[in-house]
């Protein structure tokens, strides 16, 4: 019998609206070709949730994209792209449980697309950063405008990046882990109200 232990696994969520670059972000930094799996709804509460919001569309499975980063021999990080459509948001509980935090990918031309992801993170106290994907060139809005529009806590980093650039995705990921660390050390995830 082998005596070695499997590595410890951590995960981050890659969230945001439909078509903002979540899959690109995962693919840019993943050491494996991003994989897709079908994750099933496991509890009745989730089914009730779906029924309430989309009575005609009760799906029992949903596709989930993910990638992997080996940190060292004993630690591996998985990136899970959350389903973009609102009706799949029940899936997030499964992925968010025990997550380091969330990269909320935003597109300033359609900033509102990412509001559900931000709301979710704030409600569930998931540490997050907002990463504005600038693949179409210069952003339409600067950081101050994005901060005002999203009304996130002062400690939530807002970064501009290109989902196709590995170095930039790495910087955004580093900012998220720093943010998660600050939250773990006691900084509030959301603004005290």
């Amino acid at each position: 019998m082998r005596s070695e232990l499997p590595p410890v696994a951590l995960k981050v969520l890659v969230a945001g609206g439909f078509g903002v670059g979540k899959t690109t972000t995962v693919g840019t930094i993943s050491e494996i070709e991003p994989l897709r799996t079908e994750a099933a709804i496991t509890d009745l509460a989730a089914i009730a949730d779906v029924s309430a919001t989309a009575p005609d569309k009760v799906h029992t499975t949903v596709a989930l994209d993910f990638g992997r980063m080996t940190i060292d021999d004993t630690l591996v990080l998985y990136l899970f792209g959350t389903p973009g459509q609102d009706r799949f948001s029940f899936m997030w509980d499964e992925i968010a449980r025990g997550a380091v935090g969330a990269l909320v990918i935003a597109d300033t031309q359609r900033l509102a697309c990412s509001f559900p992801a931000i709301d979710y993170c704030e409600r569930r106290r998931v540490p997050f950063v907002i990463a504005v994907n600038c693949f179409e060139g210069a952003p339409l809005h600067d950081e101050a405008a994005v901060r005002e529009a999203t009304a996130v806590a002062a400690g939530v980093p807002i970064l501009f990046f290109d989902a196709r650039e590995q170095n930039l995705v790495k910087l955004v990921l580093t900012a998220l882990v720093e943010r998660a660390l600050a939250c773990a050390r006691g900084e509030p995830v959301v603004r005290a109200s």
């Binding site: 082998r2 232990l5 499997p6 590595p7 410890v8 696994a9 951590l10 995960k11 980063m69 940190i71 060292d72 630690l75 990080l77 968010a96 449980r97 025990g98 997550a99 380091v100 569930r124 106290r125 998931v126 540490p127 790495k170 990921l173 580093t174 882990v177 720093e178 998660a180 660390l181 939250c183 773990a184 050390r185």
Partner: peptide, 27 residues
């Protein structure tokens, strides 16, 4: 054998020690 994850510890916040390891690794 199944490796450890953060889920056993806390609902959303991962432990400081594990995050420090992750941060050093990502950097």
């Amino acid at each position: 054998r199944i490796g450890a994850t953060a889920q056993a510890d806390a609902p959303t916040i991962v432990s400081v020690a594990l995050l420090e390891r992750l941060l050093a690794g990502v950097r």
